[in-house]
Simulated scan of single mutants.
Amino acid sequence: MRIYESFSRRGIDAPLLRQGSRSGWSKTFTAVTLLVWLLVCATGVGLAQHRDGDDAFLPSPVRSVSTVPSNGDVNPYGVAFVGDNFQAGSGPLKRGDILVSNFNNSMNQQGTGTTIVRVPKSGSPTVFFQGKKPLGLSTALGTLQVGFVVVGNAPTVDGTAATAGPGSLLVINNQGKLIQTITNAAIQGPWDMALVDGGDRAIAFVSNALTGTVIRMDFKVSSGGLTLRSTKTIASGYIHRGDPVTLFVAPTGLVYDDRRDVLFVASTGDNAVFAVWDAADRQMDGGLGTVVYQDNVHLHGALGLAMAPNGHLLVTNNDGINPDANQPSEIVEFTTDGRFVKQIPVDPAQGGSFGLAVRTTEDKAILAAVDDNTATLTIWTLNSE
């Protein structure tokens, strides 16, 4: 396909890009769905808001842990899994760990959080990284197999949008040490990121809160850090503005589908999810892209974005746009052709749903999502056995 050809031209191995894809998962997911259905039938509990006969992904919560570190940082934003190919070395990270970035400090000032918390498969969370001011670690969080954690820094001076700076991308090694700070004129409040790992090459798609744009940054990757090869603005025109409650209303969640070379963009102010085609190849700004999902009944400020193993998209809602007190802090599941499937709440109050991530293995799927209201991470697990 074009994306594999494109990355081949850049020297990126196609098999590496296939890691985490949905191929080979259909039998496993069918078993998972059957298990959920049997449980539903046995207990008499229905799948709320389930329509169109689609096989839903969203399960029931099974684990909740605090994301508040020793320095008191709150407002967990980004969520990322440590992959099976991550070179942990002698560092604290283990494959399957969950990382959570904190955006606020202990005084709850937005854009001032300095920590990334490690949530192991079992046991208590620990601090993986603690940086120095000025930092505001955003939803832009990901890992590279070489052993790096990459996180967006969208700092403010006093917790208000008026004092927000352009920010940067931080590169942290597997020991939890900052090794590189990447700044660029195109980085303007890195709000979220989709990180495509190709071994010795990587692409970072970054949504910008200050400009309402999405950029593509192509990197060469080595054990010493990331070398920027090129930067392109591939999408623009999304609603973006400062907000006293959410700090920014701007394009946020990003999911990259390598099979079709399409980047999905959740834009909070537009309350919609868009598709930007030829994302890894395009050399020109594609504007907003194409609307994939726009549903004022179930969307209430589309925010974080992830892809389920059944090919559906999951989007969180910050309740800052089109709020509905009867549908607070929802994660909404929908198909890539725009059909609603299901929704579940993260918190009984509004404003709790933000970052999320999905990890799939041969025998299970794991969904992790933060609750900003309680500064916790909720983890759902589906087993095929």
Rank of each mutant, 00 (worst) to 15 (best):
K121E: 15
I179H: 11
L17Q: 11
T183Y: 13
T233K: 13
P328A: 05
P76K: 12
S8Y: 13
L303Q: 03
W380M: 07
K220I: 14
K177V: 07
C41E: 13
G11Y: 15
G212M: 01
A202G: 12
L195Q: 01
A302F: 03
G83W: 07
G253N: 05
T183S: 11
D197Y: 07
V255R: 12
S23I: 11
A308E: 05
K121H: 08
G352Y: 11
V149W: 01
A306E: 14
V119Q: 05
P61Y: 11
S207V: 09
G286I: 06
V255Q: 15
A56T: 13
S21M: 05
I234G: 14
G338P: 06
Q109H: 04
A42M: 09
F248N: 10
A80P: 04
D97S: 00
T361F: 13
D261Q: 06
S267W: 10
S101I: 12
R339L: 08
L39R: 15
G24S: 06
V119A: 07
V62I: 00
L247I: 12
A280W: 00
T114M: 08
G198M: 06
D52P: 01
A162D: 09
R18Y: 08
D73R: 00
Q109F: 09
V117M: 15
V127N: 14
S122V: 03
K121T: 15
Q87V: 13
Q350A: 14
G352V: 11
G189P: 09
Q110W: 04
Q130W: 06
W25F: 11
C41Y: 12
L314I: 12
L254A: 05
L377W: 08
